[in-house]
Write a protein that binds this DNA or RNA. Structure first.
Length: 809
DNA sequence: CGTTAGACTTGGAACAATGTTC
DNA sequence: GAACATTGTTCCAAGTCTAACG
């Protein structure tokens, strides 16, 4: 293996913008069906589309960006109005191949049958049990006194675990027909439960005034507790982005003044810029510090107190089964943290009292107690609903709900239903693609717009894009795209730039089907700046049509389908059975990343990312440096090794003399400092213990040793290699091998980190990738599940674990 | 029909817990 | 063992989509 080669990807990855990756990926994942019903009529555009697909699928095979650009440019110059002159001899074949691959995945056993595969079901508990004795065995070596206690603890844990295991409702093992939600015609009229009881919701504690005064115009002012609370909400955010956002400030101040005016004891504060919340802010900083300083015991005690309060709220009983509840807390009052350019951001979100809360309970269930002096707003018995409690929030007048946790049967069932639906789309997608491709030329602009939108939703995994009001942030999805969000570059390149959900920017450049390009141009010209491109299309209309293509189909299913499809495809492509575990994990992360890119799941890069990269690069070099030294020792012991192991004769890349020099200097400096702090610390301890101090000569001796090291390093740099007396060739080879492992692992880590800096993997893992894909992958490549799923995700996807080894999406 | 309400999924950021390193 | 980085969890805003409404 050559180091220089290995280092290439990291730097290159940097250059590859997400955009191009995303576009190639999707076009690749979604081959166009070139068997249009009417070949003579469809020839031109269909041919083109096929050829484009071919090209873009080539793109995806890691052609550097620069080359891709060239390709694009050549195409530009080549392209003329007559579409016919593009040769396509082998291009069809390529498209076919992709299609074939897709349909060969199509080993679709009817879903109903698949569910019954339970051979694995028994294995889960077995492996659990097997792991427990192992743990018990490892405690045997511990000292006698604690032995018994530990053993007790272990068996207790084991028991608890087994009990938990028994308590799990394995709904996925039951006859499908018994389950709600399996109903083809959606969830309407479905009874979800017959018995439902829970302890209601947990209210946040009443406000406790701190008495710290804010200042106005430089002078401290006294506020009523109610006003102080609101001032404190803002004070806490003083240094955050929200606190600095003018809209946030304006909205906060207007609501703050309203609260102030409610009580004549409050001062009149006219101007925001005269307010000074820093005294409160400082107090909060202090509080945080103090909280951090608490001892372990104190923290534990606080935690226990919290848990004791929560305990009754944790579970609900549904038809006799215990189910975990997700969010049983009423949201505390605060300032509304709207995202992006939300016109209401900063407004006061008021405290919620029991009178505003509706509980959903079984008729027979006891009504839980609530805050003293209060009563519940309403008690209902809605057996079609899965919410346990609901209330209205005052900012946007929208409903908030308490639901069961993600590991519950209700959530699990609808999750499974969602993925099964996406999987079902596989069987329809070719037909649907053919049909919208044909519709791209429909005379009815309504139909044509719908087809164009479907193309985008399918190819780019765009969201549907419902209408939004003036009181919300201006964000869009497919149906609500406006003129200015799309830039067209002939012959068929489209630039997208708009704010999507959560005001996350979607920026992408794609080559599209010629007819799509023409349509977009036409629509744009018809509407003009500031107007919706698809002016005849609504999400409702689109979904109605989709539903007629396949029962239960809606726009979001395409996102799920394309995400899961991509993941399956990438995992198959990237993983090798004989890879090391870290390599497999890297492959997994890459597949996961492809999906995240496709769905445009972003995160803010950490402020220290660049520094962190420098640090890790330095770590890599340090390992290489150590390796180099070992190599040299090896050759000085036995020169013949050079011939036997030519791989060891090669120099480490990017280890130049300057770096080595600097590294040695740094090493010495660090060593010196270490010696000194250690010396002083020891003396401080001695002082505290009343022991005699170590003399300064001791420090000098130790520092002299550092100097010896320096001399040795200098000598080694000069080519003078010293080998320890007891060192052997075998030992050296062994050490080098271990360094190589470390080097490899660190490099992988670096690559992963860089590729990941602005991409958030969590959302796709949690919501878009069919967990059965991942479970099957883990099994066939012998990767422990915990390496890819956190504890909670394992629980959430329990239903996905009883599948055959060869399960494919 | 278009509009709104309601219920449920999806999403990034903040926060907490845990792991790593000096 | 404290400081830092990483990972996992919680929070709650912001979507989707269907049903009900007028």
């Amino acid at each position: 293996m050559s180091d220089s080669e290995d280092d290439i990807p990291l730097s290159q990855i940097n250059n590859g913008p997400i955009i191009s990756k995303a576009s190639t990926l999707i076009l690749n994942a979604a081959p166009i069906d070139d068997s249009t019903p009417d070949p003579s009529e469809a020839r031109t555009s269909v041919t083109i589309s096929a050829s484009q697909d071919k090209e873009s699928s080539e793109d995806s095979d890691d052609i550097p960006l620069t080359q891709r650009k060239q390709q694009l440019e050549t195409e530009k110059t080549l392209a003329s109005d007559s579409d016919d002159d593009i040769p396509l001899a082998d291009k069809r074949a390529a498209t076919k191949q992709i299609m074939k691959q897709e349909s060969s995945d199509d080993d679709d056993i009817p879903l109903a049958k698949k569910r019954k595969v339970q051979a694995k079901a028994k294995e889960v508990p077995v492996s659990k049990v097997a792991s427990s004795p192992k743990r018990a065995a490892s405690t045997v070596s511990t000292p006698a006194p604690s032995k018994k206690a530990k053993k007790d603890e272990v068996s207790k844990k084991k028991l608890k675990k087994e009990e938990e295991e028994r308590e799990i409702y394995r709904w996925w093992e039951e006859q499908t027909s018994q389950r709600a939600g399996d109903n083809e015609d959606g969830g309407d009229g479905v009874i979800r439960w017959t018995e439902l009881s829970h302890y209601g919701v947990l209210f946040p504690p009443e406000y406790v005034p701190h008495g710290i005064q804010m200042k106005y115009d430089g002078k401290p002012v006294t506020l009523t507790p109610e006003a102080e609370e609101v001032a404190s909400f803002f004070a806490a955010l003083l240094e955050s982005d929200h606190g600095k956002n003018p809209t946030f400030q304006k909205n906060f101040f207007s609501d703050f003044r309203e609260v102030l005016a409610k009580n004549p004891k409050n001062p009149r504060l006219e101007r925001f810029d005269k307010c000074d919340f820093t005294p409160i802010w400082h107090q909060f900083q202090l509080d945080k510090e103090r909280k951090k300083q608490l001892t372990k015991e104190e923290k534990l005690k606080l935690k226990e107190e919290r848990q004791k309060i929560e305990e009754p709220f944790l579970f609900a009983t549904v038809d006799g089964r215990k189910e975990q509840i997700g969010n049983f807390r009423i949201e505390p009052p605060g300032l509304f943290r709207g995202r992006g350019d939300h016109p209401k951001t900063g407004r006061l979100k008021r405290r919620v009292y029991p009178e505003q809360v509706t509980l959903n309970l079984g008729k027979e269930s006891p009504i839980p107690p609530t805050l003293p002096g209060h009563k519940w707003g309403k008690i209902v018995h809605d057996q079609q609903a899965t919410w346990l409690a609901t209330w209205k929030e005052n900012i946007n007048d929208t409903s908030k709900y308490v639901f069961l946790a993600p590991n519950s049967s209700w959530k699990g069932q609808s999750d499974m239903k969602k993925f099964d639906k996406a999987r079902e789309l596989k069987n329809y997608v070719d037909k649907i693609r053919a049909s919208y491709t044909a519709d791209l030329k429909d005379k009815l602009s309504e139909v044509r717009q719908r087809a164009t939108a479907m193309y985008l939703i399918d190819r780019l995994a765009l969201r549907a894009g419902n209408e939004k009001g003036d009181e919300e942030a201006d964000t869009v999805g497919c149906c609500s795209l406006r003129y200015e969000h799309v830039t067209l570059e002939p012959p068929n390149t489209v630039h997208f730039d708009f704010l999507g959900k959560d005001s996350i920017r979607y920026e992408n450049t794609v080559q599209v089907d010629h007819q799509v390009f023409k349509n977009l141009k036409l629509f744009q010209n018809q509407v003009g700046e500031g107007h919706a491109i698809f002016d005849r299309l609504t999400t409702t209309g689109l979904n109605k049509h989709l539903n007629s293509c396949m029962p239960g189909l809606s726009a979001k299913v395409f996102r799920t389908y394309n995400a899961s499809f991509t993941c399956q495809q990438q995992l198959d492509r990237l993983t090798n059975a004989d890879d090391t575990l870290p390599d497999k994990i890297l492959s997994f992360n890459r597949a996961n990343r492809e999906v995240a890119v496709l769905c445009n799941h972003q995160r803010a890069a950490s402020k220290s990312h660049a520094q962190q990269m420098v640090k890790i690069e330095d770590k890599i070099r340090t390992i290489k440096y150590q390796r180099m030294k070992l190599r040299k020792q090896l050759f000085s012991l036995d020169a013949s090794i050079k011939k036997k192991r030519p791989d060891l004769a090669e120099d480490e890349s990017d280890l130049d003399d300057d770096w080595i020099m600097q590294h040695d200097i740094d090493t010495i400096a660090k060593e010196r400092e270490k010696v000194q702090t250690k010396f002083h610390k020891q003396n401080e301890k001695r002082k505290a213990d009343g022991e005699p101090l170590q003399p300064d000569s001791e420090l000098k001796d130790r520092l002299a040793k550092v100097e010896d090291l320096k001399v040795q390093l200098d000598k080694e740099r000069g080519g003078d290699i010293s080998v320890a007396a007891n060192m052997t060739v075998h030992k050296l080879l062994d050490r080098i091998a271990r360094l190589d492992d470390r080097l490899n692992a660190t490099k992988i880590q670096a690559t992963d980190k860089e590729e990941n800096k602005e991409i958030s993997l969590g959302t796709s893992k949690m919501n878009y990738i069919d967990p059965r894909i991942i479970v099957a992958w883990c099994r066939s490549y012998d990767v422990p599940m915990e390496k890819v799923y956190s504890k909670t995700l394992v629980q959430k996807f329990r239903w996905a674990q009883d599948i055959p080894d060869d399960w494919k999406f």
